[in-house]
């Protein structure tokens, strides 16, 4: 699982060990949409990456092209509305601290 559902992380993980990924833009050519799919009716919703699209309907079309062969349900979330917290660090960004 990625960094979106923090409650899914290990029980002994101290919340302070995670830092919020800064709100850097995720696309320079459109809006980025996080994609979640459920393969079966009783399966878990799974983060499977992101697509670039102008709006939710277009994002759904893109996601359906990619995952329609396997996905029963598709959820989309604007990446710029998603707060991501992670124990992973990539070093100092240009121009200062992480958000």
């Amino acid at each position: 699982m990625g960094t979106f559902c923090t409650e899914a992380l290990a029980d002994d993980m101290d919340p302070e060990d995670r830092t919020r990924v800064r709100d850097a833009p995720r696309s320079a050519t459109g809006r980025e949409w996080e994609v979640f799919v459920r393969e079966d009716a009783d399966g878990a919703l799974q983060h499977v990456g992101s697509v670039t699209a102008g709006d939710a309907d277009a994002a759904h079309d893109r996601a359906s092209d990619l995952f329609g062969w396997t996905a029963r349900d598709v959820w989309l979330c604007p990446a710029d509305e998603t707060r991501r917290y992670t124990a992973h660090t990539l070093g100092e960004p240009a121009g200062g601290e992480s958000a």
């Binding site: 990625g2 960094t3 990924v21 800064r22 850097a24 995720r26 980025e32 983060h47 990456g49 992101s50 697509v51 670039t52 699209a53 893109r62 990619l66 991501r84 992670t86 992973h88 990539l90």
Partner: peptide, 9 residues
């Protein structure tokens, strides 16, 4: 147009 994820995450 599709990303597996981001290396900042």
């Amino acid at each position: 147009g599709y990303s597996l994820g981001n290396v900042r995450d």
